[in-house]
């Protein structure tokens, strides 16, 4: 039987893990979005398991010709899945979005711990900005404030839209924003006004931090987990006075991008050794200290069924195992 070619892209973020399988024409055959919950290996196993079930249910049988990982756990998961590409999330996001919106000029991206602004002209990334030093104005802030107000993070957007008079919440720093929020709640601001205020403050923070000196031109695409929050989308539209495009798969763009990169990277067209039954494989990570110099780098040793497959985390090559990716 002639099997179809498939390419896996996994984007393991701090908060959520996203995965897609695409075919030769970049169509998404299966996708999944779950919480990472601090366990990237477990989350990845879960995603591969879902892939397997989705493919079986749709009667698709695939040979895997590309595996790409991106996001903050990309090195760890890349090693475990034996990926042929490990790439940063900025490149992955740009390529994923360009596949969906070829005429995009500005990508706004807000994830769990970081936010990015990617400027594209004529299909080429020409500039980008990424938040540094602190995680203010990201998904982590939204979810902690939702918890404080006792609402589900998924409902924030809808509630924000009902507000007629959003509270003004300090936008510069999460710590100040939080005390602003608490004070306003205690003097009687309604919950929907507060929530709309938070959404505005995320947007203000984003534009002040990343938008500085950058020209935001149409077409503007908004993605990342926070793009699912309609309150923030509306706040962006008000602040920029532009139409904001949000794709149904806006949360999967990084995973889609890395899958496409893995497809392009597999130039010799060899099938990769990949087993969908990864759930049964036992992966273990053990931390050790290198002690090679006074940096005492923390080295992570990765074991697959009790066999050491990779070592990483060192500043120099002394404590690391060198593994070359083609």
């Amino acid at each position: 039987m002639n099997k179809q070619k498939g390419y896996i892209g996994i984007d393991i973020g701090s908060i959520s893990t996203k995965g897609v399988i695409i075919d030769d024409k970049n169509n998404i055959l299966a996708s999944e979005y779950i919480w990472t919950e601090g366990a990237p290996i477990k989350a990845t196993k879960k995603i591969i398991e879902t892939f397997k079930n989705t493919l079986e249910n749709n009667n698709i049988s695939l040979d895997i010709y590309g595996i790409g990982t991106t996001g903050s756990a990309r090195n760890l998961i890349g090693s475990i899945l034996n990926a042929n590409v490990i790439k940063n999330e900025i490149t992955a996001h740009a390529i994923g979005t360009l596949n969906t919106f070829p005429d995009v000029k500005t990508i706004l991206e807000i994830g769990g711990q970081d936010s990015k602004l990617i400027i594209i002209r004529n299909g080429i990334v020409v500039d980008y900005a990424m938040n540094t030093l602190c995680a203010a104005g990201t998904g982590a802030f939204l979810s902690s404030q939702a918890k404080r107000l006792g609402v589900n993070i998924e409902d924030i957007g809808k509630i924000a839209l009902t507000s007629k008079n959003p509270s003004k919440i300090a936008a510069r720093c999460t710590v100040f924003a939080e005390s602003d929020l608490v004070h306003k709640a205690q003097i009687g601001h309604t919950k929907e006004d507060l929530i709309a205020g938070i959404c505005n403050s995320v947007v203000q923070n984003y534009l002040n931090n990343l938008g500085k000196g950058k020209i935001i031109e149409d077409k503007v695409v908004f993605q990342g987990g926070v793009s699912k929050n309609i309150g923030v989308v509306k706040a962006f539209e008000n602040a920029l006075n532009k139409k904001i495009y949000v794709d149904d798969n806006s949360h999967l763009m990084g995973a889609l991008g890395i899958a496409i990169i893995s497809k392009n990277a597999n130039k010799n067209g060899n099938k990769l050794d990949f087993d969908f039954n990864i759930k049964e494989v036992d992966f273990k990570t053990i931390g050790t200290e290198c002690n090679g110099c006074s940096n005492n780098c923390e080295i992570i040793n990765i074991y697959k069924d009790n066999k050491l497959i990779d070592k990483m985390g060192g500043r120099c090559q002394k404590g690391n195992m060198i593994k070359k990716i083609v």
Binding site: S72, K87, N88, E89, I90, T91, V125, D127, Y128, M130
Partner: peptide, 9 residues
Amino acid sequence: TRIEAFYDM
């Protein structure tokens, strides 16, 4: 991450 992305770009 940022350096890699800058180089890629």
